[in-house]
Amino acid sequence: MKPAKFNYVRAGSVDQVLDLLEQPAGFVKILAGGQSLNPTLNMRLSAPDMLIDINDLDELRGIRVEEDRLHVGALTRHAELERSELVAGHAPLLTKAIQHVAHAAVRNRGTIGGNVSLADPASELPACCVALDASITIRNKQGTRVVRARDYFKDLYETDLQENDLMISISFPLAGDTTVCAFREFVRRRGDFASTGLVVNAELVDGVFTSFSPVFFAVANTPVLAAGVAQLLVNRTITGEVVEQAVAAVDHDVEITGDSNMSEEMKRHLAGHYLREVIGELYG
């Protein structure tokens, strides 16, 4: 299929984008990598009146460390994340996860901002943002705000982002010597969206988890930080029994719902299985 008609504006500045968003001529959409938006246009699942192409906005690009945080511009391509040594050094969970996002050709175009704006519940990156306690910088005509990833994901495809907002960047706390992380997802074919996933970022000090952030994804409308699970594992000696308690706590923490790809029971089973595996992997 071909998209329905739309107007196309190649934005020359962030301000221009904000202006266009403020007084929209109908239904307006920002176009970043187009790797999620364009399939929906092609299938006429979405028919905006105008696309604002932000690909020329260099100020939205780039990966740098500033004030003890790793800043990633919204327009940073998945492939740039994948190859970045800064990311590998300071947010290794992202490096682990990004290889599981789509295929090379899609990663060359898709952007972290587009991904986190869309907030597909089956996507790896929103879960990483929550696990890493990232902060998201959002701007509109009225000003700039920084939202914690842990407060940003509201519901299915619903985030803190409003119609007049442009995502500018995402920042991550820097990993330290004691930071450990793990990634698990269930896909039947490499590069597919997950049907159940778990990412963990943790601090392991002298054989004890001083922090543990397990985030389940593709099991509910948003990525879910399992606080109860974390509590059971932090500052405890990890025994088989503790692990089983943690697995049992998943059900309490996460309201798992099935979807067309996978039943609720299977998601629950896999969530527990991955948690067991990840604890084993990190705890050694």
Partner: peptide
């Protein structure tokens, strides 16, 4: 329900 390339899975090289 799955009449599109996203949801109708076909064999890919990786597997």
């Amino acid at each position: 329900l799955n009449g599109n390339m996203f949801e109708y899975l076909l064999p890919m090289a990786g597997e």
